[in-house]
């Protein structure tokens, strides 16, 4: 049996700054994971991934990342995504400066 599709967000790095970014429901990008669109349909997620990957002048390395959902907002499912969403642990650099 194929594995059931678990909730995901579409994520990438911004071309110019390298920042971690997430796809929003308005088909734009946010730097804040909690603002990301939660994708629950596999076909839709794959389509969005293809579309986002075509934005070559904006994003790099788009992929789908697993998330947990709490109060309708995405939270990282894996510690790697938690670091991407927050920034490094040795300095308050990266996103933790902004959010």
């Amino acid at each position: 049996m194929p594995k059931p599709f678990t909730p995901k967000v579409l994520t990438a790095n911004a071309l110019l700054e390298g920042d971690v970014i997430y796809r929003t429901a308005a088909a734009g990008w946010t730097r804040d994971l909690s603002q990301a669109e939660i994708l629950t349909d596999e076909a839709d997620a794959e389509l969005q991934l293809i579309e986002a990957s075509a934005e070559v002048a904006t994003v790099v390395g788009a992929y789908l990342a697993d998330v947990k959902v709490a109060d309708g907002k995405a939270q990282p499912a894996h510690f790697r995504e938690a670091f991407r969403a927050k920034g490094p642990s040795n300095y308050a650099h990266g996103k933790q400066e902004q959010f």
Binding site: N13, L15, L16, E17, G18, D19, V20, V56, A57, V60, G61, R80, F83, R84, G87, P88, H93, G94, K95
Partner: peptide, 26 residues
Amino acid sequence: RIDGALTEDEFKPLRLMNGLYLQLHA
């Protein structure tokens, strides 16, 4: 690369030849 004439697949080997990586946050 910035104006979109090069894709990431085309640009990546060029940036790596010049020591530029894309890491986790930057």
